[in-house]
Design a protein around this nucleic acid. Structure first.
Length: 280
DNA sequence: AACTGGCCCAACCGCAAGCTC
DNA sequence: GGAGCTTGCGGTTGGGCCAGT
């Protein structure tokens, strides 16, 4: 048996909303609230629209606290960090940006930030190709992470409260790395990195996270220094090949960016082996 | 001035989860 | 427990706008 449609598409108006419709919806919601039922709302409000369409219009455009455009550098950094660690979970990302909607953030990423990131990643790899000579220094010993389990109230529909517990506000503009204990079913962690992680893993903060997922800001994994991506050279902040591999594995949504950089990598192997394309 | 191609964003679509009975 | 309905989410599309030719 097929799923019942949410409304009769043939009889309801579709496409762009007129100012009159906007006013009708706005005044109805302001007078009566949503009433817990979007499906019934259009009829009550006298709108010839699908309830789903009304909900979208209200949430993405008519709500009084909505901001449009004019993203700040701070917002860029938050979007970048969260996308790097949790991927395209736009509702969670938007929840960290007051006045922004998931649709707005998604559009902003797809039309602007993503291109910016790919361009900078390619430029960074090209720059390093001309200076590194392909040698990789031993990694620095990482500082154990200082995580604040109560630092965020982020929740998601999938109940990903671990993320909420581990995420720290953007005191770490370089981004966050998500990793599991070495038992992970994702791509194998390079041995030299696994050795580093063992130290970090034994911290009380990590234990408080049930021995499961956690996020580390890149500088604390040995990147060091200022990492102001997308305003600085994010990729050159990574100290060695092993760390680069780790970050690629646990930046699952950066696959396309690594893919783009492969074209300019000296050995054509910029995208590390075992690159994970999905998270858990 | 007319055309074209790229960009941007509002809106739609389908799926999955949550809720109610 | 499960069927049906609603809500929330992320991916995709379509059309308006604008710069370049």
């Amino acid at each position: 048996m097929g799923r019942a449609p949410c409304c009769d598409k043939a009889s309801v108006k579709r496409g762009p909303w007129s100012p009159e419709e906007d006013e009708q919806l706005r005044s109805y919601v302001q007078r009566n609230g949503i009433g817990g039922n979007w499906i019934a709302l259009p009829q009550k409000a006298g709108l010839n629209r699908c309830g789903k369409s009304c909900r979208l219009r209200w949430l993405n455009y008519l709500r009084p606290d909505i901001k449009h455009g004019g993203y700040t550098e701070e917002e860029d950094r938050i979007i970048w960090s969260l996308y790097s660690s949790i991927g395209s979970r736009w509702s969670i990302i938007a929840s960290k940006l007051p006045g922004r909607t998931d649709n707005d953030v998604k559009n902003y990423w797809n039309t602007k930030l993503k291109k910016k990131a790919m361009a900078m990643a390619a430029a960074a790899v090209a720059g390093r190709a001309s200076s590194s000579g392909g040698a990789f220094a031993a990694p620095a010993t990482p500082t154990p992470p200082a995580l604040s389990p109560a630092s965020s109230s982020v929740t998601s529909s999938s109940g990903d409260v671990r993320f909420g517990a581990a995420y720290t506000e953007p005191q770490h503009p370089g981004g966050l790395i998500r990793f599991h204990a070495p038992r992970t079913e994702l791509a194998p962690v390079p041995p030299v990195v696994a050795a580093q992680l063992d130290g970090a893993w034994s911290t009380p903060a990590a234990a408080a996270l049930d021995g499961g997922d956690m996020f580390l800001p890149l500088p604390e994994l040995g990147g060091g220094g200022e990492q102001l991506f997308p305003y600085g050279d994010f990729f050159s902040g990574l100290q060695d090949r092993a760390l680069e591999q780790l970050s690629a594995c646990y930046f699952p949504n950066m696959a396309e960016i690594w893919g783009a950089t492969a074209a300019v990598a000296p050995d054509g192997n910029c995208k590390p082996p075992g690159l994970c394309n999905t998270l858990t």
